[in-house]
Amino acid sequence: METILGTVYGCFEFLFGPFFAEYLWGYNCDTQAYDNPNLFNSIGLTTIAIALTIVLLYYYFLNHPRLNGAGHWFIFLLLASAINLLVAYFWTVSDYVSGNIQDCLQYTRDEAGNILAQLIYKTDCWKFGMANAWVSAIVFVIFSFMLKWWSSNCKHSPTLLKYKK
């Protein structure tokens, strides 16, 4: 159960790399176990909450008859993705900048302690943001199709399953 979100994000690991992924899983270099907070869960749940909020905003709070086209829905999807991209970025970059990402995840060192390779870069935070934008989009689509049916103005957004002009 705790690994569902991480597994979903795993599909996008090619963007931000395996070591960034381990940091997000909560790998603790000192104990060599995953006992740091699982950020996939916290960022993931935040992302889900934000996407859900925007879905509800679109379908029920705004519920506007002039915003019920597929294009309008898509703009809201992009909005949610943009917000979630920034959430993921700022969340992880603050850890990166403040040194909260432990050394064994950031660098490969030789026996003497010299750096052989750098494993995590600041741009990985942006890439993770991108991955989160995709996850947000998927969540947005799922929530849209789950929740749109009771929206008086937007129930046929984004798809018009039966429409004849």
Partner: peptide, 11 residues
């Protein structure tokens, strides 16, 4: 050791 090869660790 994490990073010593191409694999993942069991959580």
């Amino acid at each position: 050791r994490l990073g010593s090869g191409d694999f993942k660790l069991d959580k």
